[in-house]
Amino acid sequence: MKYHMIAFGLGFLLDLLLGDPYWLFHPIRLIGSLIAFLEKKLRKEKDDTAKQFQMGILLVVLVLITTLIVALAILVGAYWFHPIAGIVVETVMTYQILATKCLKVESMKVYAKLKEQDLEGARKAVSMIVGRDTECLDETGVAKAAIETVAENTSDGVIAPMIYTAIGGPVLGFVYKAVNTMDSMIGYKNDRYLYFGRAAAKLDDVCNYLPARISAYFMIFVCTFLGKAFDGRHAAFIYKRDRYHHASPNSAQTEAVCAGALSIQLAGDASYFGKVVKKPFIGDAVRKVEFEDIKRANRLLYATAIACEAVCLGVMALFLVL
């Protein structure tokens, strides 16, 4: 537990300092390559819906088992060699699981382009972090897309993997990331993945159910410490009212808090692959969305991540004492 606490804390600090440099190898790319490889082998257009669903389950099982075995072998091997080596390896693995600075860096690219009044550049930048069509978005639409991504991924990309890593070390953390990566690659409700990707999508919903709600409560809590631009009471109100205004049971949890905290309206209809998808709004349009809200959303992200990290370390310390 002592070694785990050290690595957990250092990994979080590395994430805040370094983020995800493009030149640095990232193991999630290997998981993505494995998913793509298995999809080519298992998904056949001629298969009926039942067979596609079964092959999708098989893909999920194979990816999770492979991730578990590889991560466990690396970690156990490092600690077997020497405790210091184990701490170093676990620190690096923990760092690679979290995505706090990466999320900030990518969203702030959108902010920078909007500040320069470069709408085309902003559309291109936001297209790198969202799944919707961005070609027809105006400045408000681009800003909203970036804010929603920061809000949603506060849970998916930061708090959820942090919680799973705190509970089961980087092995469980990477298993969660494998689930999340499968959902982002094949968890779509379109003709290609409706049945083949259903198991991945449902598993992601299950794995994120509690973390999404924990993230929302942390976000509400930290509003108190972030100044006048953040309204904690309104965040709590909008959370209770709008937390299920999304097709996913989890995505609107943190989006609702963010919308309420900033007194803006998020979500609404969006275009995916040329098709407009009807979506309810989240939050009230107390004021118009502005590009500065991207920066505010990132402040909320960082405060939430720090609060959760502190609580996780506190719980670990308690177990260490007991």
Score class of each variant (00 low, 15 high):
I163A: 02
T224H: 15
K104A: 10
A259V: 12
E148D: 09
M55K: 15
R132G: 05
M185C: 09
I147E: 03
R296E: 10
L14F: 15
G86Y: 00
S155M: 04
L137F: 08
K41N: 13
L38S: 06
A151T: 06
G314C: 08
A146F: 03
I65S: 07
P161C: 01
R296W: 08
F12E: 00
Y95Q: 00
F230S: 03
N250A: 10
C312Y: 01
L14R: 08
A247S: 14
I186Q: 03
A252F: 04
Y272A: 06
V142Y: 01
L194T: 08
Q253H: 12
A297L: 06
L59T: 12
R299K: 15
T224W: 15
F8M: 02
P83L: 11
E255Q: 14
L114G: 06
G187T: 08
M128E: 15
R43S: 09
K275W: 01
A166F: 10
F291Q: 06
K46L: 07
K177A: 02
G141S: 11
T66C: 09
E116K: 15
D15C: 00
A160N: 02
E106R: 07
C223Y: 11
P280E: 12
W23I: 13
A143H: 01
A200C: 11
K279M: 13
K101H: 02
P21R: 09
G227E: 10
A259K: 08
R198H: 12
F291V: 13
L300D: 01
Q52A: 10
L42T: 04
K228P: 01
S263T: 13
Y193M: 07
T254R: 04
A285K: 14
L17I: 12
I28W: 01
T165M: 00
Q54G: 07
Y111W: 15
K104N: 09
G77V: 10
G56M: 04
Q52I: 02
E39S: 07
G260N: 05
F319V: 06
Q96V: 01
A216D: 06
V206S: 10
F37I: 03
Q54A: 15
V130Y: 03
L64E: 12
Y244I: 05
